[in-house]
């Protein structure tokens, strides 16, 4: 091998190495192991990603993974979200609802969120689900319950006419025994244990806004009558107040379990 060839080769190899060494870091910057930026960029809870993360972390346990089909009231309900004022929603989330099972997520709570975060979370929830669900379900009835001006007797008749078919007071047929249970029968809402656990506001919200995710209509209906046929007509604010008054009165009724019949407390 001539001297010139050797020198040429050495130069070529050095150039190649230099190019590789120079480009390697830029390639390495895209390696999957590179740590994410720290501190992590602030994702506002008003953005879809930020809202979803906070929702999953703090709300999904009771209100459902996607804002519906959870055990608690669904928030994927545009009508409800538009009806509840932003400030009220903010204070419910920050301080919770006293003597209910809605805890506060801000203020003095352990790991509580800052007020700013909660405010942007409320905005995020509105922009995510503000248009979800059917419109006009609530018949324009205010979201907040009016305490103590309903007529329980009239409420009882309304209940019998429009609600009892799906909410009979006795136990629904045992699913294991009845292979084809009535899918609309959702169980008792006159159970005093149930009524003691929920506030008038809960009853009001459920009647007015329904639970579309579980097949329960809002104030617009349609309802099912005692004969199993559809009952035409909607509920107005007075009807809802009467229903709430009727149901609320059931809280003080004694549970009628076997132990009560036996005379035990």
């Amino acid at each position: 091998m001539s001297r010139m060839t050797r020198i040429t080769r050495t130069i070529a190899a050095s150039a190649l190495l230099t190019v590789l060494a120079g480009t390697a870091p830029s390639g390495c910057d895209r390696l999957p192991g590179k740590p994410p930026p720290y501190p992590p960029p602030v994702v506002l809870a008003s953005t879809p990603a930020g809202f979803q993360a906070t929702w999953t972390d703090r709300c999904s346990g009771c209100h459902g993974a996607d804002g519906a089909l959870g055990a608690g009231l669904p928030m994927r309900n545009g009508e409800y979200l538009r009806a509840v004022p932003e400030d009220t929603m903010f204070s419910i989330i920050r301080d919770g609802i006293p003597s209910s099972r809605m805890p506060g997520f801000g203020g003095d709570a352990i790991g509580g969120l800052d007020d700013e975060v909660i405010r942007s979370f409320v905005q995020g929830m509105r922009s995510a689900w503000g248009d979800a669900g059917a419109k006009g379900v609530s018949q324009g009835i205010p979201w907040k319950v009016d305490a103590g001006d309903g007529d329980p007797t009239r409420g009882a008749r309304l209940f019998a006419a429009k609600c009892a078919s799906c909410h009979p007071s006795d136990e629904p047929a045992d699913r294991a025994v009845d292979p084809d249970p009535d899918p609309l029968v959702a169980g008792s809402v006159t159970d005093p244990f149930y009524l003691r656990l929920v506030s008038d506001q809960h009853l009001h919200s459920n009647i007015v806004f329904g639970r579309a995710d579980l097949g329960m209509p809002g104030a617009t209906g349609p309802f099912r009558g005692p004969d199993g046929r559809t009952v035409e007509g909607t509920l107005d604010a007075g009807d809802v107040a009467d229903l709430v008054a009727y149901l609320g009165a059931g809280r003080s009724s004694l549970p009628s379990g076997p132990e009560v019949k036996d005379g035990a407390p």
Partner: peptide, 17 residues
């Protein structure tokens, strides 16, 4: 308690209580 939802099949067809 706050981050893992009740499975949907355990929410459907359950009574209010």
């Amino acid at each position: 308690w706050t981050s893992i939802p009740t499975p949907v099949e355990y929410v459907r067809h359950r009574s209010p209580l």
